[in-house]
């Protein structure tokens, strides 16, 4: 690996399935040691991109370099130091968790049998390792997937929606584990359709929609671009509340919500003043709750399926 090489370098990659462009001229760069998120709604092309990284499918055009290796030149050695899973991890149901891991260790060409016990312990599967995987719950299989990845002691961990299908406790544990691994210097490339997940874990993010890149940048950049937060408002007199907003608070927008009540959008300070005025005008305030976080709102703006995709991605910060 040459000095300064990226952990992952994707250059102009396109993949078409029978006329449908699943990934459209995507480029991105994941630096060693960073936690990189690929965010996008269903069908955005996240999984397709990661499958190409793993060599499971071939791009129609473009190139993916992993630690400066490519499938064309290095075949399976491209995955040296790389581990992870695509969608939900799959195992042989008629083998136990341990037998699955032992077998995968054989296919890694590595010779550290102790490591199996160790990774089982990391994912809290100790005690169930000698049960057949066919009897594992979804969450247990997900954890076995993480164990199977850690077995390779990777430098780059690639996770495709790792929290998918997990209960809130499982999601919390999974995120904590990823953060802990990242803190230890591991490069993580993770796909998700949850803005909060990416915001919590990642340094950099690529937002995809319909196969193309809609945004590249840091989470900090994303925050500065985020629109003002919207709040759902329930009052004793919505008509009067709208009038108060129009007359005295031109900096915020108050409009009826399709689900009933009102939605007020504006800066936090503006909203606070508006609420104070409502109270002052003796309009009963029944509820005041954020509709979605600013980043969520931005995510929907960037990936709204109805709108046409941006002709060029929004690029911010250090990323291309």
């Amino acid at each position: 690996m040459s000095a300064g090489a990226a952990a992952v370098e994707v250059v102009g990659v396109t993949k078409t399935y029978a006329g449908l462009v699943a990934v459209d001229d995507v480029s991105m760069r994941v630096a060693p040691g960073e936690v990189y998120g690929i965010l996008g709604p269903n069908g955005a092309g996240k999984t397709t991109l990661l499958r190409m990284l793993f060599g499971l499918i071939r791009p129609d055009s473009g190139e993916i370099r992993v630690f400066d290796r490519t499938w064309a030149d290095d075949d399976v050695r491209t995955l040296d130091g790389v581990a992870g899973f695509i969608e939900s991890p799959k195992f042989y149901p008629y083998l136990t968790g341990r037998q699955n891991l032992e077998g995968l260790r054989l296919l890694d060409g590595t010779g550290l049998p102790d490591r199996v016990e160790e990774v089982l312990d990391i994912v809290d599967l100790t005690g169930r390792e000698d049960h057949k995987v066919g009897g594992y719950s979804y969450g247990m299989r997900q954890r076995l997937g993480v164990a199977a990845s850690l077995l390779r002691s990777p430098r780059l961990l690639v996770l495709d929606e790792p929290a998918n299908g997990l209960d809130p406790g499982g999601i919390r544990d999974m995120r904590a584990l990823v953060k802990r691994l990242a803190a230890g210097g591991l490069t993580v490339l993770l796909s998700s359709h949850h803005m909060d997940e990416v915001e919590e874990i990642c340094d950099n993010v690529t937002i995809m929609r319909r196969g193309s890149v809609a945004f590249h940048g840091t989470i900090a950049d994303l925050r500065t671009m985020a629109p003002d937060p919207g709040h759902l408002l329930r009052t004793g007199d919505d008509a009067k509340a709208v009038v108060v907003g129009r007359l005295r608070h031109p900096d915020i927008v108050v409009e009826p919500s399709p689900d009933g009540g009102l939605v007020a959008t504006g800066s936090e300070r503006g909203l606070a003043a508006y609420v104070a005025d409502l109270v002052h005008a003796e309009i009963p305030l029944l509820a005041f709750t954020p509709t979605r976080t600013p980043l969520e709102a931005l995510f929907f703006m960037l990936t709204d399926a109805e709108a046409d995709p941006p002709s060029r991605p929004v690029v911010a910060g250090a990323c291309r």
Partner: peptide, 21 residues
């Protein structure tokens, strides 16, 4: 998922040595 990843140098060295096909 409680314990930490093994980052002992000898483990990494052993893995690096055996990394391959």
């Amino acid at each position: 998922m409680s314990a930490t990843v093994d980052d002992r140098p000898e483990v990494h060295a052993a893995l690096a040595a055996t990394r391959g096909q």
